[in-house]
Nucleic acid binder design. Structure first.
Length: 512
RNA sequence: GUCCCCAUCGUCUAGCGGUUAGGACACCGCCCUUUCAAGGCGGAGAUCACGGGUUCGAAUCCCGUUGGGGAUGCCA
């Protein structure tokens, strides 16, 4: 095995990695870490590598790996090496690298940097508790370090269960490193213990494999969550034992929930896919996450991926933990919705229409097939694009759009909101207003266009001597089923003359 | 217990020895208006966690305290 000796040298091409453990889906925090790594690589003309840390067979699943990959792609992140794309430093799944870890252990044995430990988990636990009770450091007491080599080998040959521990040089001293985000960080030598590299069952531990892989893959900058800050000194010791050059470290503070606690299921949606399903745009999530802990200039809040990859720098990363603010994410998303334009909007809406089986002429009671929906959208593109201005300034997410436009897809089965009926329909003058509306709209000479419709209805309040609000709110409830809806005249045009008149008729019948 | 890290409006942040402490979200008011939004204008909101220093001068530098987070696993 060859460990490159010059990768961390100044001027070497940047190589960074995102190394998720597939024990769950890609969550907000992981996504941000991936985004920063990716942006750093792109900004510096380096390589972004994806490595799956699936060494825990209990909790890792191929499904989780697949979902993490899907989420990263959805966000628009492309890796230069990793699953699905390959690369010269593979394989990129740790479970496929066990041979490499065994070789690395062999190398460490030759360098006298490890030793077998025969302590049982029980005795270890007992000692730890005793140390805690004595209010002192609870690390390993190096009990097996002094076992003579031949005796140790004999016990191994006899089949005695053992782990392999790192033989931390006694004269090592404090571990000091310069974190690119947190600055100089010092861990006292008294806190360093001979931790386990290889378990009884022969599988390697995280703090060990992460170093072997980062060294072998030539990683120059390790950018990761600050829950690993305390692991860094251990890993530095492994690099030293391996004789590998040290990468630079940059730790990212955690993302917290609204209560200031670490983000978890209790806080609702935490996975990238959940936000996708709720109708958030990948560009918006990327934008918001990039801003959660990093700033371009303190002023700019809306920017695209190109701005990020063109300006990202570790020095502008904030050290304090950030609370995830869903309201601001929603606002960012709304900004993208307002800017995306009708064509892109229809494309984005299509999956939602398919999911609900909605078509122009369909009805809520009889959902159309996805094929029928696609065909309807293709055949009536202008009609669908006309929806965009109605909701672009009203909805924050795609998921909010369909309920807002339900009246356009209700066919002849529009359900009237009871409260709206009481407030706007069952009132003095509403029946007269509807009758006049019916009259005006029934005239075949009236072009069925927003402007003409508006012109035809505008005069009604004056003629009746009542407030415009009374008339239009009555018509709104009759047509849209609710006192709150997108713009009225545009809606009438989209619904069509026949159906509009039918709805007015129905409302009138309700009142008589 | 031991060790490490953090601390500016409710939230995300700008600030890197001299500023009326800036911006964004959220909030409040007004305007616009047939609803809801969007938009425009304006407002409130931070004794820069607290206490000591250093300095002519500190949100910015140092020390301590408090609070929060992390590590201390044969998890990652």
């Amino acid at each position: 095995m060859t460990i490159p000796n010059d990768t961390a040298a100044a001027g070497a091409p940047v190589r960074v990695r995102f190394a998720p453990s597939p024990t769950g889906n890609l969550h907000i925090g992981g996504a941000r870490t991936a985004i920063y790594n990716w942006a750093f690589a792109r900004r510096n003309g380096g390589s972004f590598i994806l490595r799956i840390e699936d060494t825990d067979p209990e909790r890792s699943t191929p499904e989780n790996t697949a979902q993490i990959i899907r989420s990263l792609r959805w966000l628009g992140l492309e890796w230069d090496e990793g699953p699905e794309v390959g690369g010269a430093y593979g394989p990129y799944l740790q479970t496929e690298r066990f041979g490499t870890y065994r070789e690395a252990l062999e190398r460490l044995r030759q360098r006298d940097a490890v030793y077998p430990c025969f302590c049982t988990p029980e005795t270890l636990a007992a000692k730890r508790e005793a140390a805690l009770a004595a209010k002192s450091y609870a690390g390993y007491d190096r009990n097996c370090r002094t076992i003579p080599a031949d005796e140790a080998q004999a016990r191994i040959d006899a089949g005695e269960p053992h782990t392999w521990r790192l033989k931390v040089p006694l004269e090592r001293g404090d571990v000091v490193f310069d974190d690119l985000v947190f600055g100089t960080t010092t861990f006292p030598a008294t806190q360093l213990d001979d931790f386990i590299l290889v378990r009884t069952d022969g599988t390697p531990t995280y703090n060990y494999v992460v170093c072997v892989d980062d060294a072998l893959m030539g990683i120059t900058h390790v950018i990761r969550g600050d829950d690993h800050l305390s692991n860094t000194p251990k890993q530095i010791l492994v690099y030293e034992a391996l004789g590998a050059p040290l990468p630079q470290f940059a730790h990212l503070s955690m993302i917290l929930g609204a209560d200031g606690k670490r983000l978890s299921k209790r806080h609702g949606a935490t996975s990238v896919e959940a936000y996708r399903d709720e109708g958030y745009f990948p560009e918006a999530l990327l934008n918001y996450l990039a801003l959660l802990g990093w700033s371009l200039d303190g002023e700019t809040t809306l920017f695209g991926a190109d701005v990020l990859t063109g300006n990202f720098s570790l020095s502008r990363i904030s050290r304090n933990p950030a609370i995830f603010d869903e309201a601001k994410l929603a606002w960012v998303n709304a900004s993208y919705l307002k800017e995306m334009g009708a064509a892109a909007f229809v494309d984005a809406l299509l999956p939602y229409l398919k999911r609900e089986g909605l078509t122009r002429e369909g009805s809520a009671a009889t959902p159309a097939s996805p094929e029928e929906v696609a065909a309807d959208v293709a055949a009536n593109r202008p009609w669908y694009e006309a929806l965009y201005p109605l909701i672009a300034e009203r909805a924050k997410t795609l998921a909010e759009v369909l309920p807002m436009l339900a009246y356009l897809f209700a066919g002849d089965e529009l359900v009237l909101d009871e409260k709206s009926v009481e407030k706007c329909l069952r009132v003095e003058g509403a029946d007269e207003a509807l009758a006049r509306t019916q009259n005006a709209l029934a005239d075949e000479r009236l072009p069925w266009e927003t402007e003409a419709i508006e012109a035809a209805l505008r005069s009604i309040p004056t003629e009746l001597g009542i407030k415009p609000k009374l008339v239009f709110q009555a018509v709104r409830v009759a047509i849209c089923g609710n006192m709150v809806s997108p713009p009225l005249f545009e809606s009438l045009e989209l619904i069509g003359r026949t159906r509009t008149l039918a709805r007015v008729e129905r409302a009138l019948a309700l009142l008589s």
